[in-house]
């Protein structure tokens, strides 16, 4: 898969154990030369757009939660406090199917474990300290993580994370309330193509990582195959968490400093 010119460049990102987001990624995004200010504006603009577009699916959650038997307040409390789409849908689904509340809550919490994996990475990128971590933690989602990790430097990553968190939190909660009180019936987000925003955005945000090395491409392909293969046999959400096995395999596949080379060869 890797073309020769993509391999073994000087300062190859994967050999560099620097804890910050790697700067050479900016070359793979449409960064305009000579426009330093664009580096501060772009992550904020992208984050706001992503938050607004993805947050609309809170309509679907609000509607699903109320039809499952949760009150409007309970649906809103989940969006305000849990603020994790996959877990929220899982709890509503378990309640709708008449399962035990204990099992429903346990499954929903287990589904939240991918956020622990995200925050493990974000700790290194965002560098938040002290009480600020309590606020930043609530902002850890697929969207804010993907946007932060796609940025060329820590300042842009923090700006992107914060913008995504703010826009998505407000939109998701407003949409949850609207969906819970019945606004979801007036139109379907799918008619506007909003169901494609999530996957298209995640793909765009990991795109620079895919261009950066064979290990990344192998891990992404492995994650996609694992998730799709397990979808018919596991409850929704679990296959995505198990996609992390692809990353584990790549790391355990060799010594950290040579893991990339072996995985690169294997991917070709």
């Amino acid at each position: 898969m890797a073309t020769p010119h993509e391999r073994g460049r000087p300062g190859d990102p994967v050999r560099d154990d620097s804890p910050v987001v790697r700067p050479e990624r900016e070359g793979t995004r449409a960064v305009h030369p000579g426009r330093e200010d664009a580096r501060a504006v772009r992550p904020v603009r992208d984050g706001i757009l992503l938050g607004l577009a993805v947050g609309v699916s809170g309509l679907a959650f609000g509607a699903a939660a109320v039809s499952a038997g949760l009150s409007v307040w309970q649906a809103s409390a989940l969006s305000l406090l849990a603020y994790t789409g996959a877990s929220q849908f899982a709890l509503a689904g378990a309640i709708a199917s008449g399962g035990s509340l204990l099992a429903g809550a346990t499954g929903a919490i287990l589904l939240g474990s991918r956020n622990a994996l995200y925050s493990l990475r974000l700790a290194d990128v965002l560098r938040v300290r002290g009480l600020a971590r309590l606020l930043a933690a609530q902002g850890v989602t697929d969207e804010s993580t993907a946007l932060a990790l796609a940025q060329p430097d820590p300042a842009a990553a923090r700006a992107g994370f914060g913008a995504t968190f703010a826009a998505l939190y407000l939109t998701w909660n407003a949409a949850t309330l609207a969906g819970a009180i019945g606004a979801g019936r007036v139109g379907s987000p799918a008619a506007l193509g909003l169901d494609v925003v999530g996957p298209a955005a995640f793909l765009a945000l990991i795109w620079p990582r895919l261009a950066s090395g064979g290990t990344e491409r192998a891990v992404a392909a492995g994650g996609a195959v694992i998730a799709l293969t397990l979808t018919p046999v596991l409850p929704p959400g679990a296959p995505v968490i198990l996609a992390s096995v692809a990353a584990l395999t790549a790391v355990l596949g060799g010594r950290p400093d040579v893991a990339r080379d072996t995985a690169t060869e294997a991917a070709q």
């Binding site: 994996l117 996609a224 790549a250 893991a259």
Partner: peptide
């Protein structure tokens, strides 16, 4: 290295699903 790669695996899995 695991922390670096795991978002790629999770997000790719999410895109696929």
């Amino acid at each position: 290295r695991f922390a670096e790669l795991v978002p790629v695996a999770l997000l790719a899995g999410l895109v696929a699903v």
